[in-house]
Amino acid sequence: MIDRQRVAGILLVLGAGLAAAGSFQRTFSTVYRGYGQDLTISTTLWVTTSDPVDGPPDQPAFYAAGWPVIVSALVMAVAVAVMARERIAFVGRPLAVGGAGALAGIVFFYVAQVRRQEEIIASGRTGNVQDEVHYLGGLYLLVVGAIIGLVGAALAQQRYQRQEQEPEQEDEVVVHQLDSDDDTPPFGLVIPNDDEQQETR
């Protein structure tokens, strides 16, 4: 059987890597119709870009979650490194849960903002009901990375909990088997050089 801790470590690193890579990919684009040629504004977690390039200049992304994603991915990677050392592994396991949780929170927040953007565009508040929002690869990478990270963090806890329960079981009932040589025999120990009368009394 493959070591559960190793699988957890691989999943945590994979999740962190996918999320970090996803932050540099385009997450969604908004297509604005009615400008002669359609104007497409795409965004990563760092910057927004426009197509055609003579549209609005590149600028920082509105939901700029690049650094939070990178930092939480780093926390997950550090947690894996710490878990590899047996003496300080108890620090790494909670750190993995915290990092994976933070990444999931950031991605959940980001998805909520993109959905809101989609609602605004669909409602026609931009002046044209034909405008569209498209989800792109970066968003899927972020979501998949966050889910894989959570699974890895959950797997990393298994061994920790099993080790924790063992001492509790020891507190319940302890049965000792005494060696027969140590016990006082039912009729007492024979005292050497003693007369028979005293023994029989």
């Binding site: 949780g101 933070a102 929170g105 927040f109 959570l150």
Partner: peptide
Amino acid sequence: LGAGLLVGVAWS
């Protein structure tokens, strides 16, 4: 896990 989620949300 919940605390991690909350930190991520607050930071975002």
